[in-house]
Design a protein around this nucleic acid. Sequence first.
DNA 1: TGTACATCAGTGAACGCGCGTTCACTGATGTAC
DNA 2: TGTACATCAGTGAACGCGCGTTCACTGATGTAC
Lengths: 227, 227
Amino acid sequence: MTPGELLHRMPPTQDGARDPLKVQDLALDGRAIGERGSRTRSRILTSTATILEAVGINDLRVVDIARSVGCSPATFYQYFRDSSDAVLALAEQVGEETIPLGAEMRIDWRGPDGAAAARRMVDGFVRYWDAHRAVLRTRNLAAQEGDQRFREVRNRALRPLTEGLALMISESPGEGSKELTPYAAAAALVAMLERMAEFHSDLEGYGASRDDVVTTTALIIHSTVTR
Amino acid sequence: MTPGELLHRMPPTQDGARDPLKVQDLALDGRAIGERGSRTRSRILTSTATILEAVGINDLRVVDIARSVGCSPATFYQYFRDSSDAVLALAEQVGEETIPLGAEMRIDWRGPDGAAAARRMVDGFVRYWDAHRAVLRTRNLAAQEGDQRFREVRNRALRPLTEGLALMISESPGEGSKELTPYAAAAALVAMLERMAEFHSDLEGYGASRDDVVTTTALIIHSTVTR
DNA sequence: TGTACATCAGTGAACGCGCGTTCACTGATGTAC
DNA sequence: TGTACATCAGTGAACGCGCGTTCACTGATGTAC
């Protein structure tokens, strides 16, 4: 049973207002969203992702999304404010998936499995990008353009990595790490990691395979964090 | 004397065609650009840069540029195909300025002045970004969106850095650098450098000063290249 | 020095496309009794 | 089991804004003689 269904079966409260915690289950015109509605909503999201991949955010049109879903533009506006709102919802979904990558950082990277753990993290991150390239690219572009909503979604998604790395650096006993500002270094490494994940296939044109990119990136991160 | 003036005083060739090397001095409707015209062209570029800074490329309108220059939109179209064409011209101008940064890489970074040279390079690069933030941001956004013209301009501008770093890594005698793919590592480091230059002021909110960012970034680059 | 001519430079006003968005409506589904 | 009612869901068609772009034109400048 979906949350939508659940809400649907709940009696309205005395003044007709709904539980504020469930406010996300209201359509934008104030209707409650039932099972059928939430299926439509996710079909819209699926189509949005497909079109986004094909044409990019600048040419993403509500009319095209609606056509590809097989509904009227008016239906789209029941669920989303505009096309960027739908993309934001996609970015939020996708953002969740970084959490498992944070697990590699609870291993001691100075230990015998350290370099391998770093490599697993990088490899996982690149695979994550390969799976969601269009949405992640768009999220980052919007964030870079200054859109606060997308910045927050991005920061939240990257937090397991950023904080994991910053912690490692700050706890590092080595002499070399004294000069590093942990948070700045972590931000730098994550920035590098993201760009490599985004563009690794471009580098193949210059003779660096996907594997080379992963190895190289992991090595830089690992050695910076454990120096 | 500007190239425009020079052309202006040249006699037309027999068939009325002009030297193809001077084709950039023709307006888009085929007229030759004289002194007055090239002054107008650069006023348009100046206004474009100002507006770009204020509103970003997505809200950059030909009409607004024209108004701010004090001319008609039709005049704009004498010199540029559209607003992105003007931004491209700006990006080309600004791109030239990375050349001096490449000089720091002709120093031996393993030597006593190595770490300082790396720091000077990073510091110079951050200052370069501070001076041209709006144009560089826009150039990179367009490049990331896949616009080939902007990719080329960006790659050309970064080439002194990318190639300098790749060369250093490939010539490095150290054991650790054997695992690095020089070109991939150079691309990774430059990516990191760019993002730090772009966002260093954002990091101040997290307690990392501009100086911390420069030091940290320089350290990561230096130690990766000389390991 | 003056005049005719070629060429460079700039423009006002409008056309028209493309898309976002909404309105007033019909249809589908669930529930109470 | 049937019927009335409330509520959820979806829509066709159109309005209208905002901007890119162009046309047919006037004005400015330089040059030949």
